[in-house]
């Protein structure tokens, strides 16, 4: 029964990535290599982030919200953006359209994130006899994360790869990208400073990720039109 539960939670956490890959044209154009490379870049970025966090951040004994520390965390969080920039611009890809490229990178990125952050707790926790909602919420969080990473990758590809885009949209693109990049800190703020409970936080993440995805989609199609 508990293995069953583990299976369920794992399906919720990693299923959407697989579905996304197989449902979209990504699978037709065999972009798995790009995703794997993006995942490797993610690993490297995570390592650098870890080193930075360990170097610059004090270990707080309690779970209070310290604005200065959080600001530092946000700045360190932008290393992610740098990693994404590297993955989008520097990696050599076989003939892959910009459309597919950002999707493959975003997917690989989100998948690596899920594996790194969620697989081990899931394996250890969800197989136990004890039932908690924690792993179900964690799976939902992984879904929101996938959507956000895809949006961020879409915006990134707009920012760095597309040269001719409507000038009026540029500030909006940058603002959205900043919001997406700071999303982890925002949820952290909600959790710690406002003391929201997990269901509420996860709900917020889901809603905000959908909203951001919608906006990014609109921006993307708006930039697409002139061509």
């Amino acid at each position: 029964m508990t293995v069953f539960h583990f299976f369920n939670c794992a399906l919720l956490t990693f299923g959407p990535h697989a579905v996304y890959y197989s449902a979209t044209p990504l699978s037709e154009y065999d972009t798995i290599g790009t995703s794997v490379k993006a995942a490797l870049v993610y690993l490297g970025t995570a390592l650098v982030k870890l080193v930075c966090l360990a170097t610059f951040l004090k270990v707080s004994e309690n779970d209070t919200f310290d604005p200065y520390q959080e600001l530092l965390k946000v700045l360190i969080g932008f290393i992610d953006v740098a990693g994404l920039y590297f993955a989008l611009t520097q990696l050599t890809h076989r003939n892959i359209s910009q459309n597919h490229k950002f999707q493959a990178v975003g997917l690989g990125w989100a998948f690596a994130d899920s594996v790194l952050h969620r697989l081990a707790p899931l394996w250890v926790g969800a197989r136990g006899l004890e039932f908690t909602w924690e792993y179900i919420f964690q799976g939902l969080e992984a879904n929101a994360n996938l959507v956000m990473n895809l949006s961020l990758a879409a915006l990134g590809s707009l920012m760095w790869l597309r040269k001719n885009k409507p000038r009026t949209l540029v500030p909006i693109i940058y603002a959205c990208a900043v919001i997406l990049a700071t999303m982890p800190s925002i949820t952290c703020y909600l959790r710690r400073a406002l003391e929201w409970h997990t269901p509420k936080v996860v709900g917020f993440e889901l809603v905000s990720s959908l909203v951001m995805a919608l906006i990014s989609w609109q921006l993307f199609s708006a930039c697409q039109k002139p061509i």
């Binding site: 069953f4 369920n8 006899l129």
Partner: peptide, 17 residues
């Protein structure tokens, strides 16, 4: 002491999923 979920819950969850 473990708080456990029932098999029905897991089945239902799988269905929804």
């Amino acid at each position: 002491v473990y708080q456990v979920a029932s098999v029905t819950f897991d089945l239902l969850f799988l269905l929804v999923l």
